[in-house]
Computed example of a mutant assay.
Amino acid sequence: MNVKENEPEQTDRQTWMCAECGYIYDPAEGNLETNIRPGVPFEKLPEDWACPVCNRPREQFTKFKSQL
């Protein structure tokens, strides 16, 4: 039962990695450098948001699965 209850939370907390530089966008942390508050899922980022490290567009990001 607990697994199903946690599924939406895991989806909301999906992290994304920049294919160019390896920067990880974590919705739980947001990105204060680009005025993205914690809790904003990747899908809700502004269309013009880019990697804060290498300035690549959102399209360069892929879902990241931690091995931890």
Rank of each mutant, 00 (worst) to 15 (best):
W49R: 04
V40N: 00
E5F: 09
D12V: 05
I36C: 05
K63E: 09
D26I: 08
T34A: 10
M17N: 04
Q14E: 11
V53S: 08
E29W: 02
M17E: 00
L32R: 15
V53Y: 05
D26E: 11
C21H: 04
E33G: 01
C51S: 14
E5D: 08
V3N: 01
K63C: 07
L45H: 01
P41A: 10
A50M: 09
E47S: 10
N35P: 14
P57Q: 02
C54D: 10
D26K: 10
N31Q: 13
D12Q: 01
R37V: 13
M1Y: 02
P27H: 07
N55C: 04
P41T: 09
G22I: 08
W16H: 08
V3A: 01
V3I: 00
L45K: 02
E29A: 07
E43Q: 14
L45Q: 04
C21A: 04
E29T: 07
A19G: 11
K44V: 05
E20I: 11
M17T: 04
Q10A: 13
N2F: 00
G30Y: 11
A50S: 15
Q67Y: 09
T62P: 01
D26A: 14
I36K: 06
E43V: 11
G39I: 15
Y25Q: 04
Q60M: 01
C18D: 00
L45S: 02
G39P: 15
E9P: 07
I24L: 13
C18W: 00
K44R: 12
